[in-house]
Simulated assay, not measured.
Amino acid sequence: MTRTRSPLLIWVLAIVAAAVTLTVLMTGPGSARTGTTTVSAPAGAAVESLPLAASAPTGIEIPAIGLTRDSVMKLGYNEDLSLQVPPDAATVGWFSRGAAPGTNGPAVFASHVNYHGAEGGFAHLDDLTAGDQILVHRADGSSVAFVVDRVEQASKQAFPTAQVYGPTGDAQIRLITCGGQFDADRRSYEDNVIVFGHAERAWR
């Protein structure tokens, strides 16, 4: 029996060939962990049942590393089908061709570890540990709290595409930046740091 590949699978396989490249121009930063890991719903907020209907992210908070962004850039992919990256150090981007945060599937976010000498939005991503929380605000006025399951470091030559982009039976999140050794010739790190997490609760 002949098996055909779905457009999604073809695209995912193309991503693995190109992997994720977050270009950087300096060595990695030191720890900035604050020790604060939890996020709380505002008083009077109404609980929402997961999964949610699709809505784009408008902001992201990671208290454990002191990250707050009041806007999130939409990312697609380049002509070679590699993931686009934000155009500056501070911006956090969301892969808009994947899952929206709070819907079933992995919502994928990316930011630089550092860029042109400036500390990146995900500079301290590797300081996160299991149990830390991530809060994503959405355009429909809702917010989703995610819990970190694990943090991995993977070679860009063996990027775990299926684990990062593949379908899931619940709402999950992925955060991606550069890590590992810095390749001075390529002006890029050799690895990616990837945070895996799941949605715990949502409110409006």
Rank of each mutant, 00 (worst) to 15 (best):
N114T: 15
E79L: 08
V85H: 10
V113R: 13
V72H: 12
N104T: 15
G102L: 02
A56F: 13
G98H: 13
A56P: 00
T91N: 02
E61G: 09
R97Y: 12
I65M: 10
G59R: 01
T68K: 14
T91P: 06
T91R: 07
P57R: 10
G105M: 02
V108M: 01
W94D: 08
T68V: 14
G76T: 05
E79T: 09
T91W: 01
A56D: 15
H112K: 08
A89D: 14
F95N: 08
A89L: 06
L67D: 04
H116S: 14
A64C: 08
S71K: 12
K74S: 15
Y77L: 12
Y77M: 10
A107R: 00
A90N: 10
S71C: 01
A64T: 13
G66H: 00
D88M: 08
V113L: 15
D70F: 08
L83D: 05
L81C: 09
D80Q: 10
V85A: 15
Y115T: 00
P57K: 13
K74C: 07
A99V: 11
E61P: 02
Q84H: 03
E61I: 01
G59M: 02
T58L: 11
P87G: 10
P86Q: 08
A99T: 11
V113I: 15
S55I: 13
P86N: 07
T91E: 03
V108N: 03
Q84I: 05
S111A: 15
K74L: 11
P87N: 06
P87L: 14
D70C: 05
P86G: 03
S82F: 04
S82T: 05
V108S: 14
L75V: 13
A100C: 06
W94Q: 04
W94H: 11
G93W: 01
A89E: 12
S82N: 10
W94S: 01
N78R: 10
H112L: 09
I60W: 04
P63R: 10
A56Y: 13
S111C: 12
S55R: 11
P57M: 09
T68L: 09
Y77R: 15
A107P: 00
S111K: 01
H116R: 14
V108L: 01
P87H: 00
I60H: 02
A107I: 13
W94N: 04
V108E: 08
Y77C: 05
P57G: 11
V108A: 07
V113Y: 11
L81M: 15
G98C: 03
V72L: 14
F95V: 07
L81E: 13
A64I: 04
N104P: 13
V108Q: 02
V108Y: 03
H112G: 10
G93S: 09
F109L: 09
A90E: 15
L67T: 03
D80R: 12
N114R: 06
L75T: 11
G66T: 07
G105P: 03
S111N: 00
Y115M: 07
K74V: 12
G66P: 06
G102K: 00
G98W: 11
S55C: 01
Y77T: 13
F109G: 00
A90G: 04
P101G: 14
N104V: 14
G76D: 09
Y115G: 03
P106G: 15
W94L: 04
D70W: 01
S82L: 00
G66F: 02
G98Q: 03
V92I: 12
L75A: 14
L67W: 03
L83S: 09
N104F: 11
V92N: 07
A90Y: 01
G66A: 08
N104A: 14
S111F: 04
A107S: 05
